[in-house]
């Protein structure tokens, strides 16, 4: 049985717009919130990991001249990061074309890919409750100053929470 430790969503402004971690001993969920500095720090580290590995592998790709393109072409090839496995757990990520990153920390049982789960979360849960909800913002960074990883707004939507927990609960 796969066990999921935590789940995160990052937007194209490098902000963490959603995240929770399950504490299996206390059976409690820690969410990323403005006053939860511990979780915010964790989200920043995780984003930094994904970001730097993506840019590193992309740079290797272009510098090794596997392609004739340069990375400032109109449609650059991005070597998107899919997963890292450590001795203890695996980070699965799924990057959408629109720049959202869905990340899932799960144990080693999760195997090669949790793409199906991540895509379900994106297509069904995220799209229905946030993407197509006229009362959800087009962009979680409301002003320029909230871009570049300095944003502080998170998805706080009851329906989204409920559906996501229902979906992930058997895996927690």
């Amino acid at each position: 049985m796969v066990k999921v430790y935590s789940f995160w969503i990052f937007d194209k402004h490098c902000n963490c717009i959603y995240g929770f971690e399950y504490d299996s001993i206390k059976q409690k969920v820690h969410k990323v919130e403005t006053d939860n500095h511990d979780m915010i720090a964790k989200s920043k580290i995780l984003y930094g990991l994904v970001f730097s590995l993506t840019s590193l592998t992309t740079r290797y790709y272009y510098s090794n001249k596997i392609t004739n393109e340069s990375d400032d072409s109109l449609f650059p090839q991005k070597s998107n990061f899919r997963k890292i496995t450590t001795g203890l757990y695996t980070v699965h990520t799924f990057k959408t074309e629109t720049g959202l990153i869905f990340a899932l920390l799960a144990d080693l049982e999760s195997g090669d890919s949790m793409d199906i789960e991540l895509q379900y979360i994106y297509r069904q849960i995220y799209m229905n409750n946030v993407g197509l909800n006229p009362l959800a913002p087009l962009d979680y960074a409301e002003t320029e100053t909230e871009a570049k990883g300095k944003g502080f707004r998170q998805i706080k939507n009851d329906n989204f929470d409920k559906e996501l927990y229902n979906f992930l609960e058997p895996l927690l």
């Binding site: 592998t57 290797y60 596997i66 070597s79 990061f81 997963k83 890292i84 496995t85 001795g87």
Partner: peptide, 11 residues
Amino acid sequence: PDTSISTTGSS
């Protein structure tokens, strides 16, 4: 020690 990375796309 036992870290592996896999990426998508062109590579």
